[in-house]
Design a protein around this nucleic acid. Structure first.
Lengths: 129, 129
DNA sequence: CCTTGACCTAGAGTGAACTCTAGGGTGTAT
DNA sequence: ATACACCCTAGAGTTCACTCTAGGTCAAGG
């Protein structure tokens, strides 16, 4: 039961817009999409999964041209697995680094809100005197 | 010893470009910058710190218009502290949420690299047989 | 004085990633 | 057979956040 989807249903399933799916295909990062004889795109469950993974990479900040690089490697078959793994590990490191940076920003924001609440406290005291 | 800085030195100190500093001022998020009589910008240590904090917010994904909103509140004085704290708490939640999402993406990438290494393993076995 | 490097403004240009439009085809239900 | 929702393409438009350019001003050293 490998379901078929139109582009509208694929958009629904992946959370991307129809426009974005067509754009991604045009950019070459969805080379696996089939068509009917009349030219209408057909997606199956595997396609949806692949799009979801690409979207995951995209959401970690990987730019389109690099997604294309990854997909192009995949199209060349198993001999490129090492290189694909390298890309993924590299992206993972970037995300981990980004998370550490975000953590430090949270600390800065906390520091600031602490300052504010102390300031409020002072103001209240001053008011009561 | 509250040092003075030209825009070039301020750029150096904050890691932003001269262009970006001027752009931020034009957008109204650096209303505290003074000028010499002849119109040249002067930054002091406090300015540098404020810019660094704004840049921290910016790097967490807060858009320019919202930074402006925050700065506009600050210009109105202490009576807006609650609202500013609300903005900061809100941004903090967004960052925390983003970190969780990134964490889940790391899990997805790990899952994929595991698949790849299993696949490699199978291939090696097959080759040895 | 004059050169030189850093500063100024207004406004144009850039790059990334969509997002939309116009004009036209498809397919299914009445 | 016609209405209607959904599909297609090519290409234009949008948004965001810078980034740069042209044409000029300023200030310190020689």
């Amino acid at each position: 039961m490998n379901k078929r989807y139109t582009i509208g249903q694929a958009a629904e399933a992946t959370g991307l817009s129809i426009h974005t799916l067509r754009y991604y295909e045009k950019e070459g990062i969805l080379p696996f999409i089939k068509r009917t004889e009349s030219g209408i795109r057909i997606f199956d469950d595997e396609d949806i999964q692949r799009i979801e993974f690409l979207n995951c990479l995209r959401n970690t900040g990987m730019p389109i041209h690099q997604l294309k690089e990854y997909v192009d490697l995949a199209l060349q078959g198993d001999k490129t697995i090492d290189e694909r793994v390298r890309m993924l590990e590299n992206q993972k490191e970037k995300v981990e680094h980004e998370m550490n940076v975000l953590k430090s920003y949270i600390d800065m924001i906390n520091y600031k809100t602490d300052l504010y609440s102390k300031l409020k406290n002072e103001m209240t005291k001053a008011h009561l005197q």
